[in-house]
Design a binder for these strands. Structure first.
Length: 933
DNA sequence: GCTCTCACG
DNA sequence: GACGTACGTGAGAGCC
């Protein structure tokens, strides 16, 4: 292949010419406003820096320069004073960034050129010509169509927006002619954004057609008389000089006496200290972390320079150790003790926190430095798969009890912080082998407190975070254990594979901890994390482990009752319909109701446009006297109760404990509330008589009672507090019936003997206020006209005018920051608040109004929960917290302690926050949850 | 895996 | 004046 070799040997040097001004505007608009510590805006600088780094990393060239515009006046303004005259001034917060961006270019040791009186495009044209004459191959990096005229043999354009080269074909696509005729087309068509006049009535299409036919601009103007269309002929004659002037405007000068010689563009490595200085001055820690150890050396430990933990977390190489003997384990324990921080992670043989058995433990002591301690693996690693032949000889592992003995002190050592990702899970697993863990940090909770639902929900998984913060793809669980039917449990994984997977989890947990923990201080989230969410981790773990006793006999009995009702209702519905069909299918039900029976549909469902069969629609139809919708509503109710509750809950009873153990989610909601899943014990029925009976299955142990304690009107009290509504605060201080008071003020009736209908309406409005009221929503809730609902709202605002200020201030806060804060400092993110679509924006605004209220209530009950165990212990009481349902706590108490515990819980909950309104707590005790409420 | 419906606060 | 919504969750069933 001599030919190829020859070509390679004579391949010309390459030159990249970057249109810096284009980069600046793109960078500015791609990032939200941000400032460096001294207050200087730097979003465009950061965006530019990242784009420049990417370009330098991706390009394959020996020479590079970034070219900028300098000032607004150029020689073109002498030709045509209005040229680019309508361009608005650069945004105020971009102006101070222009000089810093020049610094960025120099910091990377890249040539940076600009020249008074000329546009960047002219300099680019000039350098391109010079380079071509020297035999260099030129790539111009720009998305600007005005540069397309430069494309020719040896000069290519690269569009950084679309990441694609622009050659003669792309130019032809854009202008309808080749690169050498682009200026002629532009001269005719003009450019309104640059104030290039062109010829009236001629756009790019027509211009291309004319130039193709006549060859070039001068030939066309000379032969303008031959044009058939009279108007076009006249314009080309009349505006010939204007066309020539336009051509002078768009034609790039390639003979500029450039200030820097081409030789100075040779690619050079950056000066480490200059680059570091620039990045540090602008607070670009993430960029520094990226280039450290690569473009510039990491400061050495011995030199006295501080190691940047963030940088180290980002760049450290991984080296993992398998721990199969006690000696090695002791070395790791000693290292962890010396460091004072260790990341831990457990591997189990089942996903369920309550059932999974411990298979192994991983620990990390520094970024990239981690180990895995296999404890219950059944396959060594010699053979790939156990083919069922009984050859699963256990590999060499430290006996579980020896490992527990070695780790016990470390895990409770107050001088060693244990870091986990969703460590609540590990607490359960370790507790079952007799290990407690304290103190602890949780990187999932850290991520939630810092970034919340800013980037969407459910994005605090270790895999997500490693990808987001370190651009690292974690080994997927399914790549280790498979998925679906062929999935194996972790104890069957070979030790080598288990080491890679498990140690990586601990490693990246530690890296995340180094990255996220310092942000608490920088972003003023220390208090929320330290006093609210971190203490919840061990507390919730204890609640989950305790569980709540559920009597399967009660549930089975209810299932039978419900089944009978469902059967009867089904027969009746089918009889009325005239044929059997699946009542549970909204599609089939819709066909029966709206097609066969020709009932009037109330509304369309949101997504698919199908006619809704929702409860409100069926209720309307039932109220009109139709029998079938009423039966369907009953059928639905019993089906729901049976499938979701009575049938499902029996399956959720843990055979070992006879109790149901939910998992509380601490990092899932946008407001700071908890969630409950598998099963959800926060939505057990109560509103209907039949549903409420399900709560009879939730029982206390013999000799005990369930204590329920709930906040009265906590969200409305928070409204009164945060919006500082005088009349509402007064009503709460007086302990009055708040809805009756509201009705009295709005409708001018005395509280005594208040019409129940008016009170109901006032109650709906009070709820609406909490939700960020809208006339549409209130109208739907109360089944009244929108105008009437609006009148109610107006009346409310008149009586409680402070609420309007709160709503406006909250929306403004959300718009400027992207989040709102609860009274306790929690950030609630408000994605969509600046959306163009009014629907989206409206939803985000209502969510923003609701968030400090709902979130504030969530903060308050968390404060109460955290105090309860200590208060109980101090009082010598042995009650245990079982559940939290947003404004309610459920405890299990020895009968003899019921009264004392009730008083204590009331006191703690009421005193959990000092607002400008009192907090009131209602309590009750009984042997079942139904009775305690 | 998405949509609808409905249980709770 | 249109846009098309009350806030926050999780689970089961139907359907592709």
């Amino acid at each position: 292949m001599t030919e190829t070799d020859t070509t390679a040997a004579t391949a010309p040097d390459r030159l990249f010419l970057v249109d810096g001004s284009g980069y600046i505007f793109r960078a500015y608009h791609s990032l939200p406003p941000m400032t460096r510590p001294d207050g200087t805006p730097v979003n465009a600088v950061l965006g530019f820096t990242n784009m420049l780094m990417k370009l330098l990393a991706d390009m394959d060239a020996e020479h590079v320069a970034v070219i900028f515009d300098k000032g607004r006046k150029t020689f073109r303004n002498d030709i045509h004073p209005d040229y680019k005259g309508h361009r608005p001034d650069a945004p105020e917060d971009l102006v101070p960034q222009f000089p810093i961006i020049r610094e960025a270019v120099r910091a990377f040791n890249v040539a940076c050129v600009e020249m008074e009186g000329f546009e960047a495009d002219d300099l680019i044209a000039t350098y391109a010509r010079q380079a071509r004459e020297k035999g260099l191959s030129v790539t111009v990096v720009s998305s600007d169509k005005d540069l397309m005229q430069l494309v020719r043999e040896g000069v290519a354009l690269f569009d950084p927006m679309k990441s694609r080269p622009i050659g003669p074909d792309e130019v032809h696509e854009k202008f309808g002619v080749g690169p050498d005729r682009v200026v002629d087309v532009q001269a005719l068509a003009g450019d309104s954004s640059d104030n290039v006049p062109g010829v009236p009535g001629i756009g790019v299409k027509t211009a291309a057609q004319l130039i193709t036919e006549y060859g070039d601009l001068e030939s066309l103007l000379a032969r303008a008389g031959e044009i058939k269309q009279p108007k076009r002929r006249q314009n080309l004659t009349e505006y010939a000089d204007q066309a020539r002037m336009s051509r002078d405007l768009v034609l790039l000068r390639d003979d500029v006496k450039v200030p820097e010689p081409l030789d100075g563009f040779t690619v050079k490595a950056p000066e480490p200290e200059a680059l570091r200085g620039f990045l540090v001055e602008n607070g670009f820690k993430s960029v520094l972390a990226k280039v450290e150890g690569d473009l510039i050396p990491r400061p050495e430990d011995g030199s006295g320079a501080a190691v940047d933990p963030v940088a180290e977390a980002t760049t450290a190489e991984a080296a993992y150790t398998l721990v199969q003997d006690v000696e090695t384990l002791r070395a790791w324990v000693a290292e962890a003790r010396a460091d004072g921080v260790v990341a831990i992670d457990t591997e189990t043989d089942a996903l369920s926190a309550m059932r999974g058995g411990l298979v192994g433990i991983s620990m990390a002591t520094a970024p990239g430095r981690a180990c895995y301690i296999p404890l219950a693996h059944r396959s060594g690693g010699e053979g790939q798969l156990d083919l069922g032949g009984g050859g699963d000889e256990a590999p060499r592992q430290i006996p579980l009890e020896d490992c527990v003995a070695e780790l016990k002190d470390l895990l409770v050592n107050p001088g060693v912080l244990k870091v986990g990702h969703n460590i609540k899970y590990d607490l359960h697993v370790l507790a079952r082998v007799g290990l407690e863990v304290a103190p602890l940090d949780d990187t999932m909770v850290l991520s939630y407190v810092l970034d919340g639902t800013r980037l969407g929900q459910g994005t605090h998984g270790l895999d997500d975070l490693a990808k987001r913060h370190f651009d690292h793809a974690m080994i997927a669980f399914k790549d280790v254990c498979g998925s679906g039917k062929s999935q194996i449990t972790f104890d069957k994984v070979t030790l080598e594979r288990a080491l890679d997977y498990a140690a990586e989890d601990a490693d990246y947990t530690l890296r995340l901890h180094r990255l996220l923990k310092p942000r608490l201080v920088e972003e003023r989230m220390v208090t929320v994390y330290e006093t609210l969410d971190r203490p919840m981790v061990p507390l919730l773990a204890a609640m989950e482990r305790t569980g709540i006793k559920v009597d399967p006999a009660v549930l089975k009995d209810l299932s039978r009752t419900f089944a009978a009702r469902i059967g009867d209702l089904e027969d009746e519905v089918h009889r009325v319909a005239g044929h059997p069909f699946n009542i549970g299918s909204p599609k089939q039900l819709g066909e029966v109701l709206f097609d066969e029976m020709s009932l009037q549909a109330g509304r369309k469902s949101s997504k698919t446009g199908a006619k809704s069969t929702g409860a409100d629609v069926l209720e309307d139809l039932a109220a009109q006297g139709h029998d079938l919708p009423a039966r369907v509503l009953d059928w639905r109710q019993f089906s729901k109760l049976k499938s979701t509750y009575t049938d499902a809950l029996v399956e959720d009873i843990n055979p070992d404990t006879g109790r149901v153990h939910t998992t509380f989610g601490l990092t899932g909601t946008s407001t700071g509330r908890l969630s409950s899943n598998d099963p959800n014990l926060q939505n057990i029925p109560i509103r209907t008589e039949e549903g409420r009976r399900i709560r009879e299955a939730f029982v206390a142990e013999p000799g005990h009672l369930l204590l329920s304690a709930d906040y009265s009107q906590i969200e409305l009290r928070l409204v009164a507090h945060v919006a500082d509504i005088a009349a509402l605060k007064e009503a709460f201080h007086n302990g009055a019936d708040i809805h009756a008071i509201t009705a009295s003020r709005m409708f001018g009736q005395p509280v005594e003997g208040m019409d129940p209908m008016l009170r109901r309406r006032a109650k709906a409005i009070n709820f609406g206020i909490i939700y960020g009221i809208s006339a549409f929503g209130l109208a739907r809730q109360l089944s009244i006209a929108r105008g009437e609902a609006q009148a109610f709202i107006d009346a409310y605002f008149k009586e409680f005018p402070e609420i309007l200020d709160y709503m406006e201030a909250t929306k403004a806060e959300a718009r400027t920051h992207g989040f709102v804060r609860t009274p306790f400092g929690r950030k609630c993110w408000t994605p969509g608040i600046n959306d163009k679509a009014p629907t989206m924006k409206g939803m985000a605004e209502r969510a923003a109004i609701n968030a400090p209220i709902q979130g504030g209530a969530a903060d308050i009950i968390k404060r109460a929960m955290i105090q309860v165990p200590d208060a109980l212990a101090e009082a010598g009481l042995s009650a245990r917290l079982l559940l939290q349902v947003h404004d309610e706590l459920i405890l299990e108490v020895p009968e003899a302690e019921a009264a004392a515990t009730e008083a204590l819980v009331r006191r703690v909950m009421a005193g959990a926050a000092s607002l400008s309104v009192p907090l009131v707590v209602d309590t009750g005790t009984a042997t079942t949850w139904a009775g305690a409420h």
